[in-house]
Simulated scan of single mutants.
Amino acid sequence: MTAFKELRLLPWTGPDGKPCFLSTDDNDSHMSRLADNMESVQLGMATDLLDQAVEILADAEVSPDDLRALAKDLTGALRDTLRVATSRGRRLDSRSTDHPFR
């Protein structure tokens, strides 16, 4: 069985909201590439949302409803970004353990 630290945390959750993991030695597998692409999309969307947030917050007449919507969107983007960072951090940790001179 693959050790927990060797499992890749995927950038999406299951239908019940629990994390999904991938067990593979092939970083170029279909699922690995799909996860890489999804991470890129999520990070790109977070970047775009940050730009929108700067504009919205600069507007002195922004409505409370618009601020709530922004907070909801930023919360989702932060959740996705943290999941990507956690996944990538685990993979870096496992590589440094396997190859101490990298």
Rank of each mutant, 00 (worst) to 15 (best):
A71E: 14
D59M: 00
A35L: 03
P19D: 05
R88D: 05
L34G: 01
R95C: 01
S23K: 14
R90I: 08
E55N: 11
L43P: 06
V41Q: 10
T86Q: 13
R83M: 08
L70K: 06
D93S: 13
S40N: 12
A53P: 12
D98F: 00
A58D: 15
A85P: 00
L43Y: 03
V84G: 02
K72R: 14
L49Y: 01
D98L: 12
L50R: 13
R88H: 02
N27E: 11
G76Q: 10
L74W: 01
F21W: 13
R95I: 11
L49Q: 04
S40V: 04
Q52A: 10
A53C: 12
S94K: 12
S87D: 05
L82H: 02
G89M: 02
A53G: 15
L57K: 12
R95A: 07
D66H: 04
R83H: 05
R33S: 11
S87G: 14
L82F: 00
L43N: 06
S40G: 15
A60G: 12
M38N: 10
V41L: 08
K18G: 11
A58L: 09
A46I: 04
S87M: 06
L50A: 05
C20I: 09
V84E: 01
Q52G: 04
A53R: 09
E61N: 11
L49T: 03
E39H: 00
D48V: 06
D26F: 01
L78S: 03
S32M: 09
R33H: 12
L70N: 10
L50N: 08
L57P: 06
I56Y: 03
N37E: 10
L22D: 11
A58K: 10
V41K: 09
L92I: 14
D36G: 10
V41H: 09
D28N: 09
E39V: 01
D65Q: 13
D36N: 13
G44N: 08
D25S: 14
P15N: 14
R79N: 14
P15L: 12
V54W: 00
C20Y: 06
S94L: 05
R95T: 05
L70I: 04
S96D: 02
A77G: 02
R68H: 15
L70T: 05
L74C: 12
T81K: 04
L92A: 14
I56S: 06
A71G: 05
G76S: 12
D98G: 10
L50H: 12
S32K: 01
L67H: 09
P19I: 03
G76Y: 02
D80M: 02
R95S: 05
L67S: 07
G44W: 00
A46V: 04
A46F: 02
D26T: 04
A60T: 13
S29G: 08
L74V: 07
L67D: 05
A71R: 13
